[in-house]
Amino acid sequence: MEQKEFGLHDIVEMKKPHPCGINRWKVIRLGMDIRIKCEGCDHSVMIPRKEFTRKIKKILVKHAE
């Protein structure tokens, strides 16, 4: 399985959609834990990096540096 390279402010798609129905998340914090914010309802969730890399499906928009 390939290693997904994600960065701050990238828009990602997770394997399961948020209860609001949107499956687009913005990465707003990186570290041992990763905070992502739902693009639909602005709800934010902090999850461990290992769990995040397991649950991410693909990177939709790469943030230009």
Rank of each mutant, 00 (worst) to 15 (best):
E2D: 11
Q3T: 13
Q3A: 11
K4N: 01
K4G: 00
K4L: 15
E5H: 12
E5K: 15
E5W: 06
F6G: 01
G7L: 10
G7Q: 11
G7W: 12
L8I: 15
H9E: 08
D10R: 03
D10A: 06
D10K: 03
D10L: 10
D10S: 04
E13N: 02
E13K: 13
E13W: 04
M14W: 05
K15F: 04
K15S: 00
K15V: 05
K16G: 00
K16C: 02
K16Y: 09
G21I: 14
G21Y: 14
G21Q: 10
I22K: 06
I22V: 15
N23C: 09
N23V: 09
N23I: 11
R24A: 04
W25K: 04
K26V: 14
K26H: 03
K26M: 14
V27A: 01
V27Y: 03
I28H: 01
I28P: 01
I28W: 03
R29W: 09
L30Q: 04
G31D: 02
G31R: 07
I34L: 05
R35A: 11
I36D: 00
I36R: 03
I36T: 02
I36L: 08
C38N: 07
C38V: 08
E39H: 07
E39N: 08
G40F: 12
C41P: 05
C41I: 13
C41K: 06
C41R: 05
H43T: 13
V45T: 14
V45L: 14
V45I: 15
M46D: 08
I47N: 01
K50N: 06
K50H: 06
K50G: 00
E51L: 15
E51V: 15
E51N: 04
E51G: 01
F52P: 02
R54D: 05
R54A: 07
K55V: 06
I56C: 03
I56D: 01
K57F: 09
K57A: 04
I59W: 03
I59M: 06
L60M: 11
V61N: 06
K62E: 07
H63R: 08
H63I: 00
A64M: 09
A64W: 06
E65C: 03
E65N: 06
